[in-house]
Amino acid sequence: MNPGVKLLLAILIAFLASINASLTANLAVIIGGCLYLLFKKLTWRRWLLLIFLPLPAAAAIFSAIYWGKTHTSLQYALILTTRIYVFVIAGTCVGVHLSPTTLVRSLEQNFHLPSKYAYGILAGLNLFPQMQRAVKVIRAAGDMRGEFLSWWSPRLYFKACVTAISAAENLTQGLQAAAFIEDQPRSVIASVSLTKKDWQEFSLILASFCLLLFTCP
């Protein structure tokens, strides 16, 4: 499916799931999403993250609702708990095997996102690996000077900020040197297709979800 359409679908499902309470619909998304991720061969590391990362939040919500003062029904507690997984799984389905570059190209080409936002965001995302590397190097640079920086050391974060600021300044010049000019038309070389089939799949999934959401408990 077209990445932009997929993102729109995930946002709509997450939005609808949070305005109406239906355990069946939530479970349908979770099962459907998991099947899709199995089909897409998600790595086992990502599976572990997918299951265990939201667990504290899900457990906290469940205990607060179910054992909390108001004594709500098990059904309601489960709805709120599964909702967390609906959000996470819908997000993972969008992100699986999708590079930020392709998503941004799709948003620019198919959804007319202005290129300055598209490439501003993308260039920012591409700074992430640099920042990760920077933090590691900063710590080593500190160690080598007898200044041991812990994870909560202000100096580490100060330096990380300096690195980020200078990276942002450099980025403007970098974009300019790549002949990028705000609001100027651009051609399409790596095109992302958007077909009728994408919209048919989109409508089918959304309609089935709404049907479950508004008819089943």
């Binding site: 490439y119 790549a178 002949a179 990028f180 651009r186 051609s187 399409v188 070389i189 790596a190 095109s191």
Partner: peptide, 10 residues
């Protein structure tokens, strides 16, 4: 990215 900025055909 550069070639799209230059508005070249694919």
């Amino acid at each position: 990215f550069i070639m799209e900025n230059r508005q070249l055909t694919a």
